[in-house]
Every structure is written in structure tokens, then in C-alpha cells.
């Protein structure tokens, strides 16, 4: 690193606390990839158009929301919790409903946009558990895919929405 001017950042990523000294100009995505080995999150453009780098980020008192990690400095993420595609599955490796639906419905081909697409979809479904096709298309318009024409991505997100609603109902019944 070329700078002696470094800042201490503490970020919980996928359940592990990482403490590092970084150059202030370091982007969160580069911090994740180059310092923390979180190479599941990728960089697809320089202009925050493609969304391939999308992760979930939230403060200690705020829920995690999707952010393009190329548009966040690592120092801005200090004190937050971050979930990447690598931390989305359950403790025993059980896939998140969105991951499962992407597999079931062939919503990926080369897979490069997939981490960002999945993380954006997870956030979208937290806002809107039952989106229409149009709402999914609008909701994912910040994530570019060159392989699929989006058709199976839209189907997968709506299918995952149905699974998540069913899971939520089961949870509520159990709670009742």
C-alpha cells in the first residue's frame, strides 16, 4: 500500500469480525475481495451500473439493506455488519430460498452477476414479499445480466417470494 495514512475499520462480514487498517480510498468491494478473501463478491463495472458487487449492509441498530459495495468506502462501513453471497446460506449450508430458486429455475448462466443479483433480490423481497413481475423487473433494474435476458431471474425471484411467504406462515403457525 502506498499510503501511511490508514484508518482502522471494524466490520462484521458473514458473521466474522474483521479489524483492519485500510487506505481511506479503499472501496468496500476491494476490502472484501483483496483483504478479507471474500472473492464471491465481484466487480463488473466502474460506474455502479452493473450491481454485481451488491451486498447487504446495516448498522448495529439498523437492518441490513442492499448496497453496491463499489459505491461504499470501507471506512464508511466501519461498525456495520455486512452479508455477502458467501454468508447467505444457513449454518448447515442450507440454501437461502433465493439461491435455491435461482438453481431450480435456471436463473444464471455464467454466474458473474449472480452474487449481486441474489443479494438485490433478497433485499427486494424484504421490502415486498409478493412482488408482481413488473415490480421485480423494476426492483432489479440496478443489476445487469448479459446471459439470461432476465426472464428466469424474474421467475426465480417470484418463486422465492412464494417460498419465503410459505416459510413465514409456517413459522407463525409454530409460534402460535
Amino acid at each position: 500500500m502506498s499510503s501511511s495514512n490508514r484508518s482502522r475499520v471494524t466490520i462484521d462480514v458473514d458473521g466474522t469480525r474483521y479489524v483492519d487498517d485500510v487506505e481511506p480510498r479503499t472501496l468496500l468491494v476491494h476490502h472484501l475481495r483483496e483483504h478479507l478473501g471474500k472473492v464471491g463478491t465481484v466487480v463488473g463495472c466502474d460506474t455502479s451500473n452493473c450491481g454485481a458487487c451488491t451486498v447487504l449492509m446495516g448498522g448495529p441498530d439498523q437492518p441490513q439493506r442492499s448496497v453496491k459495495s463499489c459505491s461504499v468506502l470501507a471506512v464508511q462501513a466501519d461498525g456495520t455488519g455486512v452479508t455477502t453471497v458467501e454468508g447467505l446460506a444457513g449454518p448447515n449450508g442450507e440454501l437461502h430460498a433465493v439461491q435455491q430458486a435461482f438453481h431450480e429455475l435456471h436463473a444464471l448462466q455464467c454466474g458473474f452477476c449472480t452474487p449481486g443479483m441474489i443479494m438485490s433480490a433478497v433485499d427486494l423481497l424484504r421490502d415486498n414479499p409478493d412482488p408482481t413481475e413488473e415490480e421485480v423487473r423494476e426492483g432489479l433494474s440496478g443489476n445487469l445480466c448479459r446471459c439470461t435476458g432476465y426472464q428466469n431471474i424474474v421467475r426465480a425471484v417470484r418463486s422465492a417470494a412464494a417460498s419465503l411467504r410459505a416459510q413465514a406462515e409456517t413459522t407463525m403457525e409454530v409460534a402460535a
Binding site: K38, G40, L108
Partner: peptide, 11 residues
Amino acid sequence: DARLITGRTRW
């Protein structure tokens, strides 16, 4: 898909 949807990729 298994690797691609979980970020265990080899770009």
C-alpha cells in the same frame, strides 16, 4: 450452479 450461487467461484 452450486458454486456460482454461493460465491465459491474461481474467476
